Simulated scan of single mutants.
Amino acid sequence: MKTFSRLIKHLCTTTADGRRAFPEETLKAIEQSIVEGERRHRAEVRMVVEPSLNSQAVLNGTSPRERARELFSHYRVWDTEENCGVLVYVNLADHQVEIVADRGVGRVVTTKEWQAICRTMTEGFARGVYHDSVITALHQLNTLLEAHYPDDGSTRNQLPDKPVML
């Protein structure tokens, strides 16, 4: 029964829902937040928003965490000089946010710190506040990354800053 209700949620969550939650103005603000953050730290941040999974992925039981790891690989977030790539994944149908970090960042940032950033978004999303929630969470993320990977003048942008809407 759980799979069936999840399948219905994914079938009913459309690309149009994604565009309503993350209009062009919000996507530009996300990109700007990533750009500004990467001026202060050496980590590389990618954000992917996915309204819903396809039916087969839901029926196969693909979790948001598994999907985030798949996208981490697909978008080569792991391919940074200092192993400091971070993927922020939003799955609207499941109301989930996942952060997948490369091993360099994963060694210094705690699960509790990642969860706090995810909670900022999910709590805001539950109230229908997408723009402000994601920008606040990215500010938290950038502050955290700046503490562990401060800019030392050697930074160069290794990954695109523009968020991906699937």
Rank of each mutant, 00 (worst) to 15 (best):
E36F: 09
Y89N: 02
N54R: 09
P163E: 04
I99D: 02
A93P: 08
V90T: 10
Q32A: 15
R19T: 12
E25T: 12
E82Q: 10
R20A: 11
T13K: 02
N91K: 01
Q158P: 03
E36Q: 15
K9P: 01
A16K: 11
K112Q: 12
V77Q: 00
E146Q: 15
C12Q: 13
F72V: 01
G18P: 07
E24R: 12
K162Q: 14
N157A: 07
D151R: 08
Q158G: 06
V129E: 15
L27N: 09
V100K: 00
K9M: 11
I117D: 00
I30T: 07
Q56I: 13
T143C: 13
L53C: 02
V35Y: 13
V129I: 14
I99M: 15
H139Y: 10
I30L: 12
E25L: 04
V97M: 07
V129Y: 05
V48C: 07
E123M: 08
D102V: 10
L11K: 12
F72I: 02
R107Y: 09
G85T: 06
D17T: 08
I117M: 05
I34H: 04
P160Q: 10
T155A: 12
T80W: 03
I34V: 15
L144M: 15
Y130C: 08
T110F: 07
L71R: 10
P23S: 10
A57D: 14
R20N: 12
R20F: 06
A21K: 08
G128A: 07
E24K: 12
N60G: 01
P160A: 12
L138G: 05
K112F: 03
A68I: 06
K162R: 14
S73G: 03
E25F: 01
S5F: 15
D152R: 13
R6K: 14
K162S: 13
V129W: 05
Q140R: 14
K112C: 00
Q115R: 12
T26L: 04
V105C: 05
V97N: 01
F125A: 11
V109Q: 00
R76S: 10
T120I: 04
W78C: 00
H95E: 15
N157S: 12
P160L: 08
A116L: 08
H41V: 12
L7W: 13
V105P: 01
D132S: 15
A29N: 09
R42T: 14
V49L: 04
A93W: 02
R67Q: 13
V58Y: 02
R46D: 00
A101Y: 00
F4H: 07
Y130M: 08
H41Q: 10
G104R: 01
V134C: 08
K162V: 09
T26I: 11
L71H: 00
P150M: 04
P160K: 09
E98C: 13
E36G: 03
V86H: 02
